[in-house]
Amino acid sequence: MKESPENKEMTLSDLSDQQLVERFWAGDKEILSELLGRYYSRVYRLCYGILRNPHDAEEVIQEIFLRVFQKLDLFKGESSFSSWLYRVTINTTYMKLREKRGGDMLSFEEVGKMLDEQVMEGSGGEWVSKPDDELLTEEANKIIGEAISLLPEEFQKVVILRDLDGLSTEEVGRLLGLTPSAVKSRLHRARLFLRKRLDDFYRQLFEGG
């Protein structure tokens, strides 16, 4: 892009991701800061949502951004910068997770079977009327984390991208190569699984049974 007086007056925050990416190799550290400012929190939340450990999340996020910035010249702008970044984030973070974890994940079929058997047992105890602040204890946080860790990757990715990151059904489908109906069905099952875990936990806590 040519420098015109107009351009000079623009601040970096006015530029699109694509424009920032094009200027990156001018060696401008400000551009690095700007892109990190836009995406750091979102990428960190994804990494943490998958790895469940702040130290591991910090380690992997270095790898992700380093890889992304090193390969910026390969980035042709065919998809948006953000989907490319997300793709690298997911691939790198799951690679890390596979290195670290033992064999304690449920299979796709197991989750389906558990849900079919359990979901209609109870539609939600009295906890559903309590305020979130009262419910979100450290222990509840742990239950949520464990439930997510138990889910097979196919479910985890969908629920994390949809509910934590707020991507649309279509965006998640494009990112993961799934049809919208596959995204919806996985999202639903992941939410039901999480709901069941929380329901068991809170019933025990509040109703003693």
Binding site: L32, Q62, S123, R191
Partner: peptide, 29 residues
């Protein structure tokens, strides 16, 4: 209970921006 679950899941991940971590990442890069 389904809606509540989604909300709790979101809130459990409402992580505050850790400026030290961001700074470390920036320096590393």
């Amino acid at each position: 209970s389904y809606e509540k679950t989604i909300n709790l899941f979101k809130k459990a991940h409402n992580l505050e921006l850790d400026k030290n971590k961001l700074e470390r990442l920036k320096n590393y890069l």
